[in-house]
Design a protein around this nucleic acid. Structure first.
Lengths: 144, 144
DNA sequence: TATTGTTATACTCTATAACTATA
DNA sequence: TATAGTTATAGAGTATAACAATA
């Protein structure tokens, strides 16, 4: 991987650079939109995953973090009346996370704002166009 | 933007979905690699920006965060002997951030690991391939 | 014994506001 | 007056380990 021709090296390097750049732009965009709902990013990300009821552990998996983490995040969403913990009848260890009506409304509005505007953010648009070109001329993007 | 044909809607939706997915994968990948160097993500990101000397405020701009934030991050990197603060002779308010030799070594190794492996991460490879296809058939990706 | 979720703990990140030292 | 960086403060995220309830 280090003995590739220089042209290939800079080509994949450019893709990686764009990916990191896009990641940062997506993060900033998401933080701004989440801020409009007075939500920290982690709580907004959790809310998005709660369209249907799921157990705490499943949310932890979806967010790639520890279970102990979820407790605090859900605590804060619950305090705001957006989520409820329902004990699962089939396995009483499990808490099913269920959105309240207010939670559903906010989740849907958040989703709409987040998805609707991302592709119209100046930096993202430009980066995506560049990435598209690179991937089109790429043989190194998806090596098999 | 809400009155587009259904086909276009799902097309851009798929791109956005992929972008958020890629963002999460890049974050997880970066956290794992940073962990190999025993660095929290924020410190790793800072280190990557310090190839050449820059003032604190410029680093804050690069990381899209408040200046007060940088103080703590640089404190911890300095405690580990990776960075030094040099007072700028031309403007004595400014502190130029300069990597030590150990800092340079770690920054370069970090950069190599981070950039070298990203495109070989299974999920990233698959997502990029899908994104490439979508962008190739896309007229909605970079509207002007 | 194993698993789900919580708690206690410790560290890091983050922004705001007030401060200092320089300009 | 304005700017660069710091400090104090407060809230949030994060993981580890130990724990209670349930399986």
């Amino acid at each position: 991987m280090g003995d590739e021709p220089a042209t290939k090296e800079s080509h994949t390097d450019a893709i990686v650079e764009l990916l990191f750049g896009l990641t940062e732009r997506v993060r900033v965009h998401s933080e701004i939109i989440a801020g409009e709902f007075d939500l920290p990013l982690a709580q907004a990300a959790a809310l998005l995953h709660l369209r249907d009821p799921i157990p705490m552990s499943e949310l932890a998996t979806a967010l790639t973090c520890d279970r102990s983490n979820i407790t605090g995040i859900i605590d804060r969403l619950e305090e705001r009346g957006l989520v409820e913990r329902l004990t699962d009848a089939a396995d009483r260890r499990v808490k099913q996370l269920v959105l309240t009506r207010a939670g559903h409304r906010m989740r849907d509005r958040l989703h709409t704002r987040l998805y609707g505007d991302l592709l119209h953010t100046p930096g993202v648009t430009a980066d995506l166009a560049s990435l598209g070109e690179l991937l089109a001329t790429a043989d190194g993007a998806a090596p098999q």
